[in-house]
Design a protein around this nucleic acid. Structure first.
Length: 302
DNA sequence: GGTTTAATAGCGTAAGTATC
DNA sequence: GATACTTACGCTATTAAACC
């Protein structure tokens, strides 16, 4: 039997996981809680946009909740608030930025994180009058174009071309950033977010297979399977709602990641028994069988 | 522009060490 | 002897750089 893409099941999984992720949690982990906004910033203001933009730029290999907590403290302290002002990031020496980012543990990797932070800020200062919305306007508010430009836009630094948006340009962070700007900062002008495919990494793949949204017999590379996974989520979310707006494929990235990271990765690879089963939000949709994802190779018998 | 490679942080685990 | 703490190491996930 070749693989099947079960959209009915996909819709059930999408509803269930999105709901768990936004209202309670998945295996004890949630995304950025709704109240995680500095007390001294108005929702949707330029300050709020820069807060989200700079913070998510260093959301790499670390605990998300503690990152946002540290960033809020940094924003609410008058002495470190300048770190969210692109013009002041441009004027401040890197050593001081390193020191001030360290005050509330905003930078577990002090040199590297400060470097990313300053560069992203300075790009918005130099190219977009310190306002990311000017970048979006210049891209016709088209999310597909914005995502492309995040990857390709460069500047010259010490005679060499360097990316304008380090880390913010990574495949995983880009869609997350735009989604947060729309959902949390209320940036409704952003168009075509629904056209951005879900990033398929090992977690998204594992959770998609373990919930049986894609099942059957398959042996091959993850790349070969990825197109089916992207398509499965494009179609599964069709017609569903997410907090009074249509659900889109990238809404599923974090819920699926969390399910896999804290749940499905405990599965027995051959039979599919899972030590996290009894406490799993998705146990009613979990299927047994072989799911082996090794490097880029997938071995599926479900 | 896309693909492969090298580098690196975080995590879990196991072994070693200290303390009660 | 049991428990708590420390260190080392290998594995995974992810990025930038190098390469075609």
């Amino acid at each position: 039997m070749p693989i099947v893409i079960d959209l009915e099941r996909g819709k059930k999984v999408a509803k269930l996981l999105y709901n768990s992720f936004t209202t309670t949690d998945i295996h004890g982990r949630t995304g950025m809680p709704r109240d995680m906004v500095p007390s001294s910033v108005a929702k949707g203001s330029l300050g709020h946009i820069l807060f989200i933009t700079l913070t998510i730029s260093i959301n790499y290999k670390r605990d998300a909740s503690s990152l946002w907590e540290s960033s809020i403290k940094t924003f609410d302290d008058p002495e470190t608030k300048y770190l969210f002002d692109p013009k002041l990031l441009h004027e401040t020496p890197l050593e001081k930025i390193v020191e001030d980012m360290h005050r509330y543990n905003l930078s577990p990797r002090p040199e590297k994180d400060a470097d990313i932070w300053q560069r992203v800020g300075v790009t918005f200062y130099e190219k977009w009058s310190s306002d990311p919305r000017n970048f979006f306007k210049n891209s016709n508010w088209d999310s597909s174009l914005i995502v492309k430009r995040l990857r390709t836009d460069t500047h010259t630094e010490k005679g060499e071309t360097a990316p304008d948006y380090p880390y913010l340009r990574s495949p995983k962070i880009r869609p997350l950033w735009l989604k947060m700007l729309r959902d949390d900062a209320g940036m409704v002008e952003l168009r075509n977010l629904e056209a951005i495919p879900i990033l398929v990494d090992v977690h998204v793949a594992r959770a998609t297979l373990a919930t049986g949204v894609i099942r059957g017999q398959f042996k091959g590379t993850l790349d070969e399977l990825s197109e089916d996974i992207r398509e499965a989520w494009f179609q599964s979310v069709e017609g569903l709602n997410a907090n009074e707006r249509p659900m889109i494929a990238i809404d599923m990235y974090q819920p699926l990641s969390h399910l896999s990271m804290h749940g499905c990765s405990n599965r027995d690879e051959i039979i599919g028994n899972c030590t996290a089963f009894n406490n799993c939000e998705a146990r009613d949709l979990c299927i047994k069988g072989k799911i082996k994802i090794d490097k880029n190779f997938v071995d599926l018998e479900t």
